[in-house]
Design a protein around this nucleic acid. Sequence first.
RNA 1: GCGCCCGUAGCUCAGCGGAUAGAGCAACAGACUUCUAAUCUGAAGGUCGCAGGUUCGAAUCCUGCCGGGCGCGCCA
Length: 554
Amino acid sequence: MTPAKLAATVLTAARAVFTARGLDLSVLPASITVERPRNPEHGDYASNLAMQVAKRAGLNNPRELATALAEELGRAPGVKSVEIAGPGFLNIRLDAAAAGSLARLVVQAGREYGRSEQLAGQRVNLEFVSANPTGPIHLGHTRWAAVGDSLHRILAAAGAEVTSEHYINDAGAQVERFGRSLMAAATGEPAPEDGYGGEYVAEIAQRIVAADPEILSLPADEALLSFRDQGYLMMLQEMRESLERFGVHFDVWFSERTLHDGGAVEHALDELRKQGHIYESEGAIWLRTTDFTDDKDRVLIRSNGEKTYFAADAAYYINKRERGFDRCIYMLGADHHGYVGRLKAIAACAGDDPDVNIEILIGQLVNLLRGGVPVRLSKRAGNIITLDELVEAVGVDAARYSLARSSTDSTLTLDIEEITRKSSDNPVFYVQYAHARISSLLRNAAELGIGRGDDFDAALLSHERENDLLKTLGDFPAVVATAAELREPHRIARYLEEQVANNYHRFYDACRVLPQGDEAATDLTRARLWLVEATRVVLANGLELLGVSAPERM
RNA sequence: GCGCCCGUAGCUCAGCGGAUAGAGCAACAGACUUCUAAUCUGAAGGUCGCAGGUUCGAAUCCUGCCGGGCGCGCCA
């Protein structure tokens, strides 16, 4: 019996009670969920339905309605008992067999367990990282890389059709500065005032000169363009490789230049003009974003004829919509939260619904300490911690996990010394260890020639630890669905460490699975092997959603 | 000044209106001749920033205040 099935059973019971009493069926919700009480005395599951609907059904005593519900629900198959508590909670206990049968469902579903069709039919464009190709991926981007890629996996698991996308700012002042910085480095001059100064600049410059020695004898303006274009392409290639090593995949790398070169900006201006939100003032072309959710209007074409970055943003959004995405999700750092209003306004000015077609997730920044001392991040000063350095220090799994396990609403503080020195204390190992322990147990079972067979007696899984573990495994689909709906990958990590791994380790401590010495395997052995395999499935599926490996040995 | 985010155990953080607010780390006391002790058990640790409000019920929702982070260009 899954929680979803039980919830449906509760609702069916409620409909029966309402019908029998001539109450208004329309006050019942279309669907409900059951809760998992923290206190075991409150049963396996609990429902607050009676309290929620009593008043609207014209009843002033929720407990009285709860009593009728309890009586009806108590007759449902798989339900062992229903008690009424407090102001009208229904505390529900399941038969051991009904609870234990969940292990069968999980094992049979395998890699599919946790997936749903909740977001089926949604075409989602998920843009994240979008780092300037003027330097390595640094720690600030790395949080979005981990969280964004995980969100990609979670949304897909919830049935959405998702395209992950990385925008390349290859058309603007930043790449120009990068080009000048490269050329200066190649010719032994100091970095320009507004340029980039890290060691990597000199290194890229050397590689360009090595690959293309003629570059230094070109006229200065041609050499500059060549440094710029070769340089950002090299940088881009490094970014891709770093991200792929990190397990982060982008379906599309979208070049800003192609917007300009392909006439997409002009096209966007036409579209916005059609919607009536464009005007001219002081020689510039403006978008009247204040018609919607912006605090000031924005310039699209400057009085000197240059297109603004904002114009490209608008063109990019319209381009996404024309490619068929009905939900455009942007993941931005808190240092860009000022863009929310204007991006929403672009959607509104284009005639879209800013509450549906565009969604902007703002994540707080990462603070970096080294031995308790703040490390300031500055790409231009070259004082940066890169994605590659973090991975080298702690590994992909620990890096991804520690970045993805906290809500992006919270500023994250990482101490380089701590995650390097204490890496064995990282919670990711707690989760991975549970998976490795299971894998080892299953290997031992195979060596002993003990299989779990085609089926098992679910009623044998009646130990308190088994019951806790079963209920935890039953929560997984709802956890994935919630993580998808709220765009919060950290829920997966918290569930895995605080629920699944924790309950498995406790079960393992209390319940012997394999026979000892000369003992023979029993029906209980086989039932527990089903439960163990079901746990392995949930751990593996959950870790997959985080892009973290599920090791068979540690 | 205006806007967004945060404020929960010594530290790092969970807790999409539900019952006695949790985990990890740190610190204390225990458990390994048996399926991996990277584990488990026990004890300890709290004015959920403050004050009102909504509700049968608020850490959670609303308002105000205090404290911290970030942002408010015809920059990119």
